[in-house]
Simulated assay, not measured.
Amino acid sequence: MAELSAIDTTRAADKIIHDIGAKWMLDKETWEHGKRNGFDNPFAHYFAGRCGVLGDVDADVVYAALGWFAPGLVRAMWEEGVAIAGPAEAARRYALACADWGRAHVPDDPRLCELGERVVNAAEASGLPLFAGWRAHPLPEGGPERLTHVLHVLRELRGGLHLIATTSVGLSPLEAVLAVNPPERAQFLGWQGDLPDCGHLRPRREEAEEITDRLCAAVYERALSPSERAEFAALVEKAGGAVLG
């Protein structure tokens, strides 16, 4: 039976999980779902929905949990979004959008869902408020809706660990973005004005990626046996092929 180390599991599965999450969150179907639920602005839907699990907090708390995005954009979109539905209801509607998208686009795979849930439950949530919030959110009963939700929670796990890692190597959110991306990426995330050249910080960002991999690998180590890790990575790859093409 094939086996896989925890670090190789991270490198095989995590990018696919990230990309599946990005696909459903940025899909026009998700935006249309938001409009049907009162969110004419898809970005207000995104910020209030994704971050509504944090509760009734100030936008500075949302910025601290998210990273990457400019604080001004976070405040504008968060306040617009929660004015429409309130944090808990916005998160509930966002979870419904995730479920509906998953039902339409993600193959049903109970085994991948089972293994993914074990990884989610094995994670230590300290310092990971978005992950903790989504882990505590009610799961759909089953089917591709439940699997898509679990993949979303796994994405929040790595995202939170990566924010910890970039902070640990001394990078601000803007520096972490610009170290490996063109200015256009930072502008998309709401940063304005003259943006600094952060290319010299690329080694720190690469170090942060290595730290993130190690932190994620520790969760896979606790959650799954070597053969289960190989199975998990293969099933994630299969799901990615179906969803991402």
Rank of each mutant, 00 (worst) to 15 (best):
D109S: 10
P110C: 01
P110E: 09
R111K: 06
E114G: 02
L115K: 01
L115V: 02
E117K: 01
R118K: 14
N121D: 15
N121T: 12
A123S: 10
A123K: 02
E124N: 13
A125F: 01
A125T: 01
S126H: 02
G127R: 07
G127P: 04
P129M: 09
P129R: 11
P129Q: 09
P129S: 08
L130E: 09
F131M: 04
F131R: 05
F131C: 07
G133D: 03
W134E: 08
W134H: 13
R135T: 03
R135M: 00
R135D: 02
A136G: 11
P138G: 01
P138A: 04
L139G: 00
E141Q: 15
E141H: 15
G142Q: 07
G143A: 01
G143K: 04
G143Q: 03
P144S: 15
P144Q: 10
R146M: 06
L147F: 12
L147H: 10
L147R: 10
T148R: 07
T148P: 05
H149F: 11
H149E: 01
V150W: 05
L151R: 06
L151M: 12
L151Q: 09
L151A: 08
H152C: 07
H152F: 09
V153W: 00
L154V: 03
R155V: 00
E156W: 13
L157T: 14
R158T: 04
G159A: 15
G160C: 04
G160D: 06
L161P: 05
L161S: 07
L161M: 14
H162W: 08
H162V: 03
I164E: 13
I164C: 08
I164D: 12
T166R: 15
S168Q: 13
V169H: 06
V169L: 08
L171S: 10
L171R: 13
S172M: 06
S172D: 13
S172Y: 09
S172I: 09
P173S: 14
L174V: 01
L174Y: 00
E175Y: 07
E175R: 11
A176S: 15
A176D: 14
V177T: 15
L178F: 11
L178A: 11
L178T: 12
A179P: 13
V180A: 15
V180L: 15
N181I: 02
N181G: 08
P182V: 07
P182M: 05
P183G: 08
P183F: 10
E184L: 14
R185W: 08
R185P: 00
Q187G: 06
Q187L: 11
Q187A: 12
L189N: 07
L189T: 06
L189D: 00
